[in-house]
């Protein structure tokens, strides 16, 4: 059984800040330590990275590995998710998940729409699990985004709204840094990035009347 759902909300920040926070991988294992205290890179090929996220539960290290892909300027994919260790029963043995996250500017150009499209492939006998899976995935997405917004808001208070100079600095590490600088390295580039992001936005994209991120 295939099931698709979408999670759409507005984040009170610029497109550049939202993308920077997503690509700022150094915070994954710390600010998001509740969800992925151990983060490992398995391999990287171009804009595709295979990662392993694990945590210790009852003395056993469990987790998941997945493939992440960046489609500049503001589209992010996750797929091929596997539970770890593979011999332990896991929802990933039964349910195939693919997510596609789009960021694009709202109608005013001052906020960012986060538009997540989730495709689940669930065996028919487990169809009753779909609402629970959906609810948990939506909650997880919002919790992590709220943590990111805490970081974004504090940086905004300290350095000004839309300030991504810290991320653009030569020494600052982030995923796909050259792509990020290409698309967000100047106000003009960021404006064009917004236009490009809108060109590839889902057909269900909305830019007005979108609810603000909140639990």
């Amino acid at each position: 059984m295939k099931h698709r759902f979408e999670v759409v909300y507005s984040m009170d920040t610029t497109l550049g800040c939202a993308v920077a926070a997503y690509l700022d991988a150094e915070h994954y294992a710390f600010l998001h330590s509740k969800y992925s205290p151990h983060y490992e890179v398995v391999r990287k090929e171009g804009r595709t990275i295979r990662i392993r996220q694990t945590w210790t539960y009852g003395g056993v290290r469990i987790g998941q590995s997945c493939t992440t892909e960046y489609a500049p300027p503001a589209r992010f994919l996750n797929y091929d998710i596997e539970g770890l260790p593979v011999f332990l029963p896991s929802v990933h043995h039964l349910v195939k998940t693919r997510t596609e996250l789009f960021y694009y500017p709202d109608a005013t150009g001052t906020k960012t729409i986060s538009h997540l499209v989730v495709d689940l492939d669930v065996p028919a006998p487990l169809a009753m699990l779909v609402p629970t899976l959906e609810r948990k995935m939506v909650a997880l997405k919002k919790e992590k985004d709220l943590e990111d917004m805490e970081m974004i808001f504090r940086r905004e208070r300290l350095f000004g709204r839309g300030n991504i100079r810290g991320y653009l600095a030569d020494h600052q590490f982030m995923l796909h840094k050259d792509d990020f600088v290409h698309h967000f390295g100047s106000p003009d580039a960021e404006r064009r990035a917004g236009e490009l992001a809108l060109e590839v936005a889902p057909t269900t994209a909305r830019r007005e009347g979108v609810p603000e991120l909140g639990i």
Partner: peptide, 21 residues
């Protein structure tokens, strides 16, 4: 910076990433 070990494979210098700086 613990990330230097966790993400060693990703930290190759590039046009806009200069860890030596």
């Amino acid at each position: 910076n613990p990330n230097e070990r966790m993400m060693q494979e990703l930290r190759e210098p590039s046009a806009h990433y200069r860890p030596d700086r």
